[in-house]
Design a protein around this nucleic acid. Sequence first.
DNA 1: ATGCAGGGACGAT
DNA 2: ATCGTCCCTGCA
Length: 284
Amino acid sequence: MRPSLVHDFDPEISINSGQAFLWQQVDRNWYGVHGDCIMKFSKSKDGFEFSSFPERKGVVRDLFRLDDDVDSISAEMSRDPLIAGLLKTYGGLRLMRQDSAQCLFSFVCASNTNIPMIRRMLYTLAKKYGQKVTADGMEFHTFPSAEAMSKISEPELRACGLGYRAKAVMAVAQGIESGTLDLAMLKKTGYADAKQELLKIYGVGPKLADCVLLFSLDKLEAFPIDIWIARALATHYGWLGKFGEKLTTRQYEELSESARKHFGRHAGYAQQYLYYHMRQGKKW
DNA sequence: ATGCAGGGACGAT
DNA sequence: ATCGTCCCTGCA
């Protein structure tokens, strides 16, 4: 990938914005688990250089959504003055298009916990049940396939630190394996219908569904509302006044819908900038 | 020490 | 619609 193509894009900020969990920095290089391959990028004077193990064509463009028309998306989001400012401050932040199965498993593990815990769970799963990949002389592990995941027992999942999330992970694995849940098809389905399908899976609620839709199923209008986004909406827009700290399903959908209306077709981009902004100064 | 929060969702009232 | 509970860990 020629650096010039990606001069205005910063994978480091994108990863640090909390949308993907399995990335780690080694010296000046970053390595990430992306489904069945390991991604790498490194900083150089001219920008960033990417590679993947094994070598796979187009995976960088795919993962970092380099085909998105960022200018037009930015222009649209800039109708909101706060977002316009954030776009300037954190200009290199982009949404990613993660491996959909990995993304779904990841966010199922993310409920009611924190980022370090999520990383621990997922890295443990990868190490135990993923494929070993050597990159730059170091050992990495791919994310286990749905088939591999479906063969893990609940006690084994709990041994990975999943706790009560083990049942949800099993339900997801079962759904994908049985064909009940067809993630590839959901990429081509509209937002509302795709969300309905995801919500059928045990352990997947509205917030997780929106994360998966936004971060892996190309639904840029998805607007996941976690505790931080809720705070942002309360602080900067006063939208949460009548709501408490916790949102009911009804309130979640109501709020998510008004966010979609306010921020436009690519509301999910605005969400990611808001999330990153709210998390400044925090160290996971 | 004990409590509590941390990218929620489920099940019983 | 509200409320307790779920597993686990770090931190105050």
